[in-house]
Design a protein around this nucleic acid. Structure first.
Length: 277
DNA sequence: CTAGCTTCCTGATAGC
DNA sequence: TGCTATCAGGAAGCTA
C-alpha cells in the first residue's frame, strides 16, 4: 500500500515527466474517484491547464497548475499513477486519463477505487481533503520526542495504532509502522502510556530514519516504474518485518509472530520486541 | 473525547 | 475442479 515513501516515489517519478506539460483533455471512466467538484466541472476546468510542480503532504499528492489551482490526489489502498505513451496497453481498472498536449497520458488506475481526486481553484477553501488535519512531516523541526510524548504519552491505545493516526505524524501506514516498531524494539501492542521517555526518543529518531530509508530504496527509473514497479510502488525494499510471519528475525533468528491490533495485521519479533513491564 | 464497529472495493487465497 | 467465505487495509462515518 502506498505510504509516505511510496507517495514520495510517485511524485519523484511522475513529476519530472509532466512539469511544463499542458492538458489537452480529460477522460473519466469512473466517476467515483472524483470527489470535488462535480464530474462535468472537473474535466472542464482541468483542460487547458499546465503543470508547474508536484508536491506531497503525508500521503496526499498535489499537482500545481499554472493559474494557481491545485489538483489533489490520495491513492489510498491501490491507486496508481502512470505516464504512458498514447498506445500503451490499457489496464483493466483505469478510471481517469489525462491527455497531455504531446500525446502522452497520465493514467489513474485503482483496483479497489478507494482513491480520490479533488480539484481546488486558487483561493478556494479546502474543506474537502482534510489535509489541514495532518500532523507534522517526520522531518519537521516540530517532530520531536517531546512532541510525541506530550501528544500520546497518556493514551491507552497501542502505539501501533497511534502511529497510523495521520494527525500525530503524517504518512505512516501498516507496513512502515511494523518496520519502525521493530527497529525501535517496541512491542506493537504496548500502550502509549506504558512507553518510557527513552522509547519516545527512539521513536522520534527511528520514524524519520525508516521513512527516509524507504524513499531511498524505492529509487528507480521511469522505465522501471512503467514496466511494473509502479504497481508495487517500491523497489524491493527488503522489509525486515512486514509479511514475515513465521520467518526468522533478522536480528536474533527467533520466529516472527503475527497478531491483529485495531483490525490491522502486525508482525513482530517476540524476543527483540518485548512488552514493557 | 474516545472506543469500537462498519463501509467502501476487488483479487488472492483458504477451505470444503 | 469449482464453489463460497475470508482477508487485505486507509480513512471516514457512525453509534454508544
Amino acid at each position: 500500500m502506498p505510504e509516505l515513501p511510496e507517495v514520495e516515489t510517485v511524485k519523484r517519478i511522475i513529476g519530472p515527466q509532466i512539469i511544463g506539460q499542458r492538458i489537452a483533455g480529460v477522460e473519466i471512466c469512473n466517476n467515483q474517484v472524483i470527489a470535488h467538484p462535480e464530474l462535468e466541472q472537473f474535466a472542464e476546468i482541468l483542460s487547458g491547464r499546465a503543470f508547474t510542480s508536484m508536491s506531497r503532504q503525508g500521503k496526499f499528492l498535489s499537482f500545481h497548475m499554472d493559474n494557481g489551482d491545485e489538483l489533489v490526489l490520495h491513492l489510498r489502498m491501490t491507486g496508481q499513477l502512470l505516464v504512458t505513451p498514447e498506445d500503451y496497453p490499457m489496464e483493466k481498472h483505469t478510471h481517469v486519463i489525462i491527455h497531455l498536449e504531446d500525446g502522452r497520458q497520465i493514467r489513474y488506475i485503482d483496483v479497489r477505487r478507494f482513491g480520490r481526486f479533488w480539484y481546488l481553484q486558487k483561493d478556494e477553501a479546502d474543506t474537502f481533503t482534510r489535509r489541514n488535519k495532518l500532523g507534522p512531516e517526520p522531518w519537521d523541526t516540530s517532530f520531536t520526542a517531546n512532541y510525541l510524548q506530550t501528544k500520546l504519552g497518556k493514551k491507552k491505545k497501542a502505539i501501533k495504532e497511534m502511529l497510523h493516526d495521520q494527525s500525530v505524524v503524517a504518512g505512516i501506514g501498516n507496513i512502515y509502522s511494523d518496520e519502525i516498531l521493530f527497529v525501535s524494539e517496541i512491542h506493537p501492542e504496548t500502550r502509549c502510556c506504558e512507553l518510557t521517555e527513552s522509547d519516545w526518543q527512539v521513536l522520534a529518531e527511528k520514524i524519520p530514519e525508516i521513512l527516509e530509508w524507504g524513499i531511498e530504496t524505492n529509487a528507480m527509473s521511469p522505465e522501471e516504474y512503467l514496466a511494473g514497479k509502479g504497481k508495487e510502488y517500491r523497489n524491493t525494499p527488503d522489509l525486515r518485518v512486514y509479511g514475515r510471519e513465521g520467518k526468522p528475525c533478522v536480528n536474533c533468528g527467533a520466529d516472527m509472530e503475527r497478531i491483529t491490533i485495531g483490525g490491522r495485521s502486525s508482525c513482530f519479533c517476540p524476543v527483540c520486541q518485548k512488552k514493557r513491564e
